[in-house]
Simulated assay, not measured.
Amino acid sequence: MEKVRVEDVESRIGPADVKRPLTRALGATGLAVNYYELAPGDSFAFGYHAHGGQEEVFYVESGTVTFETEEGPVAVGPGELVRFAPGEFQRGVNEGDERVVALALGAPKESGDLDLRRECPDCGERTPNRIERADDEEGALVTVCEECGAETGRFS
């Protein structure tokens, strides 16, 4: 058995105000577990995406998250859960004024191929992207269009 206090796990840089990766702290071998706090405008993910080999379940403790899906927007509020199958595109964003607190669970732990899409200002459309460390800012991450090499987002 492993017991972890969420506040004892260091937050990571990304599109969420707070992301605490709990998998390693729990010693989980077949499941990815992440704790999130989303300020208004924040997202769980770097963009609209699908995991090739992982299903994801999100549990919203407080606030409301709006997920962009292939079927249209889906609002998930306090006490609700949503599941995405492997290969199913989604992106959850806090579009409200209240802070969101949520857990994300992914199985298996390794997500398989990530298909990440973002709007590229140079290409003028949503294109495949990759995530890289920024060269000019310590600890920052950037998303880069795989078609033209343009930076499409910066996270610090």
Rank of each mutant, 00 (worst) to 15 (best):
T64D: 05
C123H: 10
A107H: 00
L81H: 07
V60I: 11
P128I: 02
V100K: 05
G72P: 10
A102R: 10
E70G: 08
K109T: 08
G106Y: 00
C120H: 04
T66E: 07
R133N: 13
I131N: 11
G79H: 02
L114P: 08
A104K: 12
D136G: 07
A102T: 13
D122R: 15
E71Q: 12
D97S: 15
L116M: 14
E125R: 15
D122Q: 14
P78S: 07
G87T: 06
G63K: 06
R91P: 01
A107W: 02
A102K: 08
A102F: 14
E71Y: 12
L103T: 05
V60H: 02
V76S: 10
V60A: 09
P78Y: 12
E88C: 10
E110F: 02
G87P: 01
E68P: 04
R117Y: 14
E88Y: 12
E98C: 03
R99L: 12
V93A: 14
A75E: 14
E132P: 12
G139A: 14
V82G: 00
E125N: 12
G106K: 07
Q90M: 11
D122M: 03
A75K: 11
V100R: 07
T64F: 06
G72K: 00
A107F: 09
E88F: 12
T69E: 00
P108Y: 00
E71T: 09
S62Q: 14
A140T: 06
T66G: 01
R91I: 13
Q90D: 13
P128A: 13
D113P: 14
R126M: 09
E119C: 04
I131D: 08
